[in-house]
Simulated assay, not measured.
Amino acid sequence: MVLRLRIPSIDWAGRGARCVRHARPSEKEDPWFDTSQYDEVLGVCNGSDIYEGPCPVRDYCLRFACVNNESAGVWGGMLPHDRHKLRQEAKADGIPLKEVEWEWHPPTEPDAPEEEILAAAADEEDDQP
């Protein structure tokens, strides 16, 4: 994540974000950043047997994460490696991150371990203004 947000956070609870009501992080665990719980929290974001349809703020959440380089955890219903790929595509197209129309797609299996993806995202952050 960047030290200074490129786009602002919103009142997630006030806008109906499911993550706020579903699973609260604790000192011992945060389900949104625990790879063993990704399937469950992806269901919260993207719809599941419990939730019909996607979270009402999923699109903004994805934009927030991509523009602000949230490199870990589930954001906008996508996994770190999928968001990293979106950022790489935008960077290759030369589009400023704030202007990208971030498009959600279903989660995929990572091509590399999460640690490598996080390291690549950190390197990428160094290249951004």
Rank of each mutant, 00 (worst) to 15 (best):
V67T: 12
D30E: 12
V67E: 09
E115Q: 12
Y38W: 11
W32E: 07
V41W: 00
D123L: 04
P31C: 12
Q128H: 10
A17L: 10
L3W: 07
E40L: 09
V20W: 04
L62K: 01
E99T: 05
N46H: 04
G14F: 13
W12R: 07
V67G: 09
S71T: 10
A65I: 02
C61Q: 00
L3T: 13
L42S: 03
D39V: 05
G43D: 07
E52C: 12
Y38N: 10
E52T: 15
N69R: 10
L3V: 09
I50F: 12
V44E: 06
R83P: 00
P106L: 14
E109D: 14
P31W: 09
P54R: 13
E29F: 10
R6S: 03
G76T: 00
I10E: 04
C61G: 00
R87Y: 11
I95M: 11
Q128C: 02
R58V: 02
N46T: 14
R58P: 00
L118S: 02
D11A: 13
V20Y: 06
I95R: 11
K28A: 14
L3S: 13
E40G: 02
D82C: 08
M1E: 14
T108D: 08
S71L: 05
P31V: 13
K91R: 15
D39T: 06
P96V: 01
R58M: 03
R83T: 00
S26A: 11
P96A: 04
P31K: 13
I10R: 10
A65C: 14
L42E: 02
A13D: 14
E124L: 11
E116W: 06
S9A: 14
G14H: 13
D49P: 04
P106T: 14
R87E: 02
R18Q: 11
V44L: 07
W12D: 02
G94C: 15
R6P: 01
A92G: 10
N69T: 04
E70Y: 07
G43S: 13
C19A: 03
